[in-house]
Amino acid sequence: MDMRSFYASAVLASVLLAAGSAIGQEKLLIGTDATYPPFESLDASGNFEGFDIDIGKAICAEMKAECEFVNNEWDGMIPSLVSGKFDMVISSVSITPERLKLIDFSDRYYNTPPAVAVSKSSDIADIQALAGKTIGTQSATTHANYAEKHLGQSELRVYPTADEYKLDLANGRIDGAVDDVVVLTEWVKSEAGSCCKVLATLPIDPVINGEGVGVAVKKGSTLRDRLNAAIQAIRSNGTYKKINDKYFDFDAYGN
């Protein structure tokens, strides 16, 4: 081989290797609000944990991307995504018509209904008995919108985080709370939530609750198709079921 050809081949191989390495090292930032167990929270060491976190890691593995979770307050989540603070959001974000005006979503990766929790000592026996009572929920969520529309005879009190409404319900400062049925069910099983019980699961409102929870991305993001392929892959290869069964005794994907 001519030495010039040899060196040219070596240079080309180096360039291709570097390009391949760069692709393999793609880094994506994922926004999440780690105050929403069992979907996303921080453990005692400050590490992210939860169903959404594990799903996010599995999706990134399928996409062969290095991903880093970024903790962000819920109220500023969508504006932060739009401004480019991170590449996507995996934080139990429901796919709703209103949000689709601002951002895009992957296909859903779970779909669970809202519910109402009350104190175990409460005389509230059904949803109708919430009329005139004070209900807490997290602000800027589908659950707040749901309560405003369907529980309008109650006084609605919104909180920046789920932890805050839980504390007020446990201490008797509000009469009930609306959130995802899984979040409330897991909370009432815990020591902190032993004060309370899930009163009822609420019917999904397609306009408010949307078609389930998806990965949120900026409008027009090329990540959307890759995310959909990754979600389909983990559903097909059993990874999704392993994660699901780690947290739940039912299929969170829904119908």
Rank of each mutant, 00 (worst) to 15 (best):
S92N: 05
D245A: 01
V217Y: 08
G193V: 07
T137F: 02
F39L: 06
G238R: 04
M77W: 06
N237G: 06
P160D: 09
F105N: 08
E73H: 10
V11F: 10
A229C: 08
V207Y: 11
L17W: 14
M63W: 03
S80W: 05
E148R: 13
G254P: 12
L202Q: 04
T137I: 02
C196G: 03
T32S: 14
T141N: 03
L202D: 04
T141F: 05
I174R: 00
G176R: 07
N171C: 12
G212D: 09
Q232N: 15
V213I: 08
L16P: 00
L12R: 14
L17K: 13
A10I: 03
R157A: 13
A34W: 03
V213N: 05
N171L: 12
A252N: 08
T239P: 02
N145I: 13
A19N: 05
K27H: 11
A22G: 07
V93T: 09
I55V: 13
A162Q: 15
A177R: 12
S80I: 08
V215T: 09
S139Y: 10
L156N: 10
D126G: 08
G56P: 15
G172C: 10
A229N: 09
G50M: 00
S190K: 13
V116R: 07
Y7V: 13
D75K: 14
Y109E: 03
A19M: 04
V158L: 09
I234A: 11
Y240P: 00
A131Q: 13
N72F: 11
N111W: 14
E68D: 12
P160Q: 09
V89D: 05
L199K: 04
T142Y: 10
A230F: 03
I204G: 14
S80D: 12
F69K: 05
I55A: 07
K242R: 14
N72R: 15
L81C: 07
A65P: 00
P79T: 00
A170Y: 13
S121P: 02
K27R: 13
E49S: 12
D168I: 00
P113T: 01
K64L: 11
C67A: 05
S221T: 13
K166V: 06
V70W: 03
I127G: 06
N244S: 10
G210K: 07
V15H: 05
G214N: 04
K242F: 11
R157F: 14
